[in-house]
Design a protein around this nucleic acid. Structure first.
Lengths: 155, 155
DNA sequence: TTTTTAGTTCGCAACAAAAAGAACCAAAAT
DNA sequence: ATTTTGGTTCTTTTTGTTGCGAACTAAAAA
């Protein structure tokens, strides 16, 4: 693949990742900044470089970066003799990612249990299938914990 | 717990589920209709009953129900000699739910692989940690497939 | 045939979210 | 001491979303 073609594809991928991240609740511009820092060969960008690269206002970048930092998505580093911040992705690890998924499942489980508790008839259609699902989710959560241990020991 | 107190708590739970579903991309009213059909003792509602219960306009209910049906969240049944549709939750099963989670993980994995493919330097910081994560996700997806089989055989 | 039921569709007003712009500020460089 | 850099904060503008109401429609009932 030619260099210019590769870079073109990277830009397209940033846009695609942007749309994807929007579905996870990030604002359009914020979602694309995430893509930028993840995809490009340059993996650390300063504030001004992001403004330049994405053609967005300073205020928008300022707010986007603050949000992404608060959410733990990115961090910045500095270099001696250089007053700029260099923003980059926080290198996630799988164990944490699995924890996140587990946490979300656990939340759904809690809600389902609250629904069941408040049902007048514990054998109603919804009560029954909710019990089935909560049982299943519990099974998976339990085993995923074991898998996490297994994976940790392997590495 | 007293009957009236229980019903009060059900209403509160609907509101809470509503806020929660909004985070998954559902519109406010739509998100609360999902709660209604899941939580209340009455588990099948007609169009007019939803209008009445939630105090929202017919057009809003019409659009919300169409969306929820398209997304496969709810379905309706009819009864002989009664022209109304009775809306209810589609009783999800765990295997499908796990499939959904797996599909999402697979999509993230695909994106990560596309990023790696387009990197000039395959040993860059991002390329390295992305490879680590994709390896991990693959491990989990593989094992979750096995767990799914195990669970299926148990039931 | 006319009326009622059970909805759907469309345009719009109100509101909320996103991004831009301008003014501002603290620290560093000149 | 003044200017420049690297941002932040506040206000405004732009854009998008949400739900309502009025008009409409197809099927069933009267």
């Amino acid at each position: 693949m030619e260099e210019s073609e590769r870079i073109q594809k990277q830009k397209e991928l940033i846009e695609s990742i942007g749309r994807d991240n929007e579905k996870d609740g990030f604002q359009p511009v914020t979602a694309r900044i995430m893509g930028l820092l993840m995809v490009m060969d340059k993996e650390e960008y300063t504030f001004d470089e992001i403004v330049e690269e994405m053609q967005i206002s300073k205020s928008t970048v300022s707010n986007a970066l603050r949000n992404l930092e608060l959410r733990g998505v990115l961090e910045y580093v500095t270099y001696p003799g250089d007053r700029k911040r260099y923003f980059r992705f926080v290198s996630a690890d799988i164990s944490n990612m699995i924890d996140e998924v587990e946490k979300k499942m656990q939340q759904k489980l809690d809600i389902m249990n609250r629904i069941i508790e408040l049902k007048k008839n514990p054998n109603s259609r919804n009560a029954k299938f909710l019990k089935n699902i909560t049982e299943g989710i519990s099974f998976f959560i339990e085993h995923i914990d074991k898998l996490k241990e297994e994976y940790k020991n392997k590495h």
